[in-house]
Design a protein around this nucleic acid. Structure first.
Lengths: 247, 247
DNA sequence: GAGTGGTCTAGACCACCTA
DNA sequence: AGGTGGTCTAGACCACTCC
């Protein structure tokens, strides 16, 4: 079938190939919750009919979304919206690996949790105004009972209404963001530095003041690439390392 | 029959999709130097004829190699072998960015350079025998005249014959590997830690002993995914950070 | 104008899953 | 057996580059 809608908008300034437009439309259905995590999408054929494009074009859009971990495709079963609890999504954003042995997910203990005003750094990272309303959470994370990381999470208040009333904050906050506010974390940028442990952090981590810590500043983004979380982790890397693959 | 645990689908005997076989054959031509960096490849149509597959299958192989930065495709011009001197490739493996301002490439000063026996750690990383012959190079790298990192590079001697006779080692060693030994660095794994500066490193970097440094251990791999370089960088991250994007 | 890669379509067959 | 995604082919048209 030939799409009866405008097919060659070459006169447009912002030209996008058809498969990219299809992708945008499908992403929008993820954003607005039409398709929730875990749900199956219609088949390629069905989507092609709905959108008035060929199956190949739908496939190109789906493949690109799968490459970005938004979808999971299983031959013979169908295409599904990726869930934040799946281990491969979990470790997508968790790059800390023990020097010996296999990676495991740390426990969390919240030590403070409430509303605050955005500092300049927070405002810049989150794309909001300095002094704007944010939620701020501080947690200590442990492996095998051993504190290894203290982290400060900052969230723009307007994207997370009612966050302050939560009585409990689960270990996997990305699943919480998804279930409670329909916000899917799709990508993140991280910046790493080596710093000396402050007195406060040293006390929390049970290490010496001045001990070298790995500082990880993460800006996490949603499906539409808007920043939604700032996370500032200070980590004892004596028996751990941060692992990246460069291609 | 008895469906044991989930097995990966491509666990089968030797089955590979046609486009993956085509990719393998094309990669081999890069490895053996048939197509050198900067050279144009035959057109898709020509390759399809040569390999007796359809243009679409050739395209899928070329697209995958382009995604892995082995090739560069330019509409209307052709497909070219990626060159290690292009800034795109340069920054592919260099993730250190100043906190303010734009990234630039540091100068290098070699402070030692010669043959050695592989330590256990080096042997494990490079997949050679402990005590095997290696080249070892130590360099200090500076930005705007300011030393910011000291690095130790270890190379397996058999992959780099004659390395010891070099009188000068250029700043961009990946270009050297390519031009002199036909070895293309295609990917790398990096591990980061925060450590305290040793007395030796502190002297070289002009910082205090015990100052927190970012330790970056890189294993660089060739087109066939074999480890060919181990690099151990200790970096002053006071005004710099290591930048990663997670998708 | 000729040649290249980029997009889009259409249809075939295969491997896999569920029922 | 019927539906799904995965692969492969063939051909059309477009946008870009070079001559």
């Amino acid at each position: 079938m030939t799409p009866d809608t405008d097919k060659s908008p070459a006169d447009e300034i912002g030209f996008k190939p058809l498969y990219a437009q299809v992708r945008d439309r499908l992403v929008r259905r993820l954003v607005d919750g039409t398709w929730a995590p875990g749900m199956p999408l219609p088949s390629e054929m069905e989507l092609a009919r709905q959108l008035n494009v060929s199956q190949g074009t739908v496939r190109k859009a789906l493949d690109s979304m799968t490459a970005d971990n938004m979808l999971i495709r299983r031959q013979g079963r169908g295409t599904f919206v990726a869930e934040p609890e799946e281990s491969r999504i979990l470790f997508q954003f968790y790059r800390l690996v023990p020097d010996v042995g296999i990676a495991s997910f740390p426990d969390s203990r919240v030590i403070s949790h409430g509303s605050a005003r955005a500092t300049k750094a927070e405002a810049t990272a989150l794309g909001i105004e300095e002094g704007g309303d944010v939620w701020r959470i501080e947690r200590i994370r442990s492996l095998a009972g051993q504190p290894m990381l203290v982290e400060t999470i900052t969230l723009p208040a307007d994207r997370f209404p009612g966050f302050g009333e939560l009585t409990e904050i689960p270990n996997n906050v990305y699943r919480l963001y998804s279930e409670r506010w329909g916000i899917t974390i799709a990508s993140a940028g991280e910046r790493l530095k080596a710093i000396a442990a402050s007195g406060r952090d040293a006390r929390k981590l049970g290490c010496e003041k001045g001990e070298p810590l790995l500082l990880i500043s993460r800006v996490a983004r949603d499906l539409e690439d808007r920043p939604v979380e700032l996370r500032w982790s200070r980590c004892i890397s004596r028996d751990l390392h941060y692992s990246v693959n460069l291609r």
